[in-house]
Write a protein that binds this DNA or RNA. Structure first.
Lengths: 225, 225
DNA sequence: CATCACTTGCGTATCAGTGGGCAGGTACCT
DNA sequence: AGGTACCTGCCCACTGATACGCAAGTGATG
């Protein structure tokens, strides 16, 4: 899964690149429209920032579209409607406005990919974690021992993120970037509250242990015999 | 996946062609009924506009139907019942009225393909959801406990879309794109009203639950064992 | 004139985020 | 090693914001 990331803002690009790599994407990163057009490819999807220094991103979009039908997802700091419409009319497949969460970008990439490959094997049922917990990402539902667990949206997002890679240690910053916004800074106490909610609602099926000074690690109960 | 698009209105055709290509379809585009009949094929599905300049689209439909069993999806500016019925009686497999969302067209193509694939020409019967509700996509009719339910066009479109994948969570944006127009933005409050109408008219047979901040999810009553 | 799509507005429920207090672990100092 | 002060994470309760549900009204269309 090959992604071309066209983004001049380094912190944003770095964050995106890290996030995407964590989800198994190969990422090539260029900072100018010219470089984007010069890059060979082929790519599975192009992430294109509209606010580039050298060229108008819209021209790049048009040029890319002209030379093939690689899916394009436009990133923009401006979130007003005109931009959105212009971007989509030029042939972009989707549009994400800053500030965005890495999770959201990934969801959109997957959505775009699914269009081209409609019947993915991953279309099968919900993911199972251990013997008690299932996460149905298509329906955004969580079941514990067969009974549905009512999770608030943020709680679900958080769980969905942590279960992407059970057992992996996630830093607070990583989690905030993924579930809240890219480039989050400030208090992360909210995270504690939501972690507590998950612990309470999913007691027995998973454990979320805090790693002091770093972040959290989700473990599936009865997973390491 | 090969599609023949018969449509004289260029902007509409262009938009459809782009959209379909993006979803992995091969599209051949002709602007007249004569050209449609002259085109070789074979195609997996024909998208046929009824408002053609040279021929009455209905004649084209009949002619196509006479020479083989390629699935036909009729597109029409007129959305009233009589047209629907006439088109479908002439052998069309489904019916989409303008203005339509690209996603909806794709959903219907897939639905038609799914139905045609297991060749049982006799019973291309209505789809059944649970024990009480049937959606007859060929006739654009909905029955509850055997009795027809009078649905407004938009209500039917919405139901048809939501029942494409029962239990799946659909975001507001997805729904607006599919049932209203591609690339819809702005208020989605209208959606709530139509959802409310479906809930009222189909009470007991289905439940449409809101997922806060995301969208809606249709469930068939007595469907979660 | 009837139907339907859409808007508006209000009541209500839910949720994200915050602050205070508590507990357990950590580091530092003697 | 022992004691202590501090820091981090955890729990509880509160609040402002916001999304949803529905009923009623408006305007367009045939």
């Amino acid at each position: 899964m090959h992604v071309l990331l066209v983004e001049d803002d380094e912190p944003v690009a770095e964050s995106l690149r890290r996030g995407l790599k964590r989800y198994g994407f190969e990422v090539d990163w260029v900072t100018t429209g010219a470089a984007a057009l010069a890059h060979p490819g082929p790519y599975d999807v192009v992430l294109l920032d509209l606010g580039l220094p050298d060229t108008d991103g819209l021209d790049v979009c048009k040029a890319l579209r002209g030379r093939g039908d690689v899916p394009i997802i436009v990133i923009s700091a401006r979130s007003d409607e005109t931009d959105r419409v212009v971007g989509l009319e030029l042939g972009a497949d989707d549009y994400v406005s800053k500030p965005f969460g890495v999770r959201e970008v990934i969801a959109r990439i997957r959505a775009v990919m699914r269009r081209v490959r409609p019947r993915t094997p991953a279309d099968a049922g919900p993911d199972r974690y251990g013997t008690r917990l299932t996460v149905d990402r298509k329906a955004a539902r969580v079941h514990l021992d067969g009974a549905e667990v009512a999770l608030a949206p943020k709680e679900y997002d958080l769980l969905a993120f942590l279960t992407e890679e059970p057992g992996a240690l996630m830093s607070r910053e990583q989690i905030m970037e993924a579930v809240w916004d890219a480039n989050w800074f400030g208090p992360t106490k909210t995270l504690d509250v939501h972690v507590a909610a998950l612990r309470r609602k999913l007691a027995g099926a998973i454990t979320i242990e805090a790693v002091r000074g770093v972040g959290f690690r989700l473990e599936v109960a009865g997973d390491t015999p």
